[in-house]
Simulated assay, not measured.
Amino acid sequence: MLTTLFDPLTVGFVQRALWGGIILSALCALVGVWVIARGLTFLGEAMGHAMLPGVAIASLLGIELVVGAAASAVVMVLGVEAIRSHKDFGRDTSIGLLLVGLLAVGVIIVSYSSSFATDLTAFLFGDVLAIDGADLLQLAVLTALVLLVNMVFYRSFLAVTFDERKARTLGVHPVLTNMLMVLTLAVAMAGAFSVVGTLLAFGMLVAPSATALLIVRRVPVAMVVAFAFGSLSTFIGLLISWHASTAGGATIATTAVSLFFLTLTIRTIRRALNRSDADGRDPDTGKEIPQCAVETR
């Protein structure tokens, strides 16, 4: 039974998909924890779709898609920061405007090429089972780059994330640090999408990191835990995908989200029980529980 269950792991392309998912988990953990802590989830999602015009132009010109994706992501970052500084608009407004604008431009460009439909499907949904050695190397290089940025600017990122006013007193420039942080997100998303598509890239960016932050609060520990959840999601998702004949990337993303809700449910139940035991009150009604009932729990 167990042999049959783990048979897919003996297949070459499944092994590469597993390694790709593990490396992607590390990349997304290094960025995703900051994204969740900073409240930039909407920006990450918008950036994934706003990369379409750059990808479309790169495809038409015959150059690497990741180059076009990165260019669009940088435009998105610069645009968000420029509009956000305007007193009449907030971050969400600028992100929404740029998302719609860049996505619309991308669709217009795609409409000029009848051969781009397949590439567009790959852009949105990817094919984790098609990962090759070059893709693994690309993900590994990006992960190393993002890790280096985190190590060098960790204190600046931490200060800006939790208290921008205090960051200024420490000599940190919040605007430049924010820009660097978002550019790191752009690089990670651009590199990840070209291998696994935006659906899996964004799912792995948000779900494992959000799950980790339900359990721990220290950023470095949260990154390690997020990496563990992302790797576990990849492992379970690939097995389910193989045996159920479902799309690999979507199954991995669904698994990651399911682990988040499972962890959230367990955490909610434990907190309710602890609160009830601590004050002798029912967590739902707030009424005092008889002492005998507390003692017999």
Rank of each mutant, 00 (worst) to 15 (best):
D92E: 11
R270N: 04
A130K: 08
A58V: 03
R16V: 07
D284V: 14
T234N: 06
A250P: 03
Y112F: 15
T161Q: 02
M204T: 01
L205T: 01
T118M: 14
P290L: 06
D284E: 13
F13T: 03
S94K: 04
L213W: 05
S85F: 06
W242R: 05
D163G: 11
N150M: 10
Y112T: 15
D135Q: 06
A70W: 03
F235M: 07
A247E: 10
A122H: 15
I289K: 07
T263I: 10
I131T: 07
L78A: 10
M1Q: 13
C28N: 11
G39I: 07
M204R: 02
P283S: 09
T41G: 08
M151P: 01
D163T: 03
L273M: 12
G44A: 05
G126I: 07
H86Q: 13
L102Q: 06
G237C: 08
T143M: 07
R217V: 05
Y154C: 04
F162N: 10
L103C: 13
V152F: 10
F235K: 06
G248W: 01
V141I: 15
L99K: 04
R275Y: 09
F229K: 08
F157V: 03
M47C: 03
T263K: 11
A210K: 00
A50E: 03
G280L: 04
S25H: 02
V221N: 12
R217E: 12
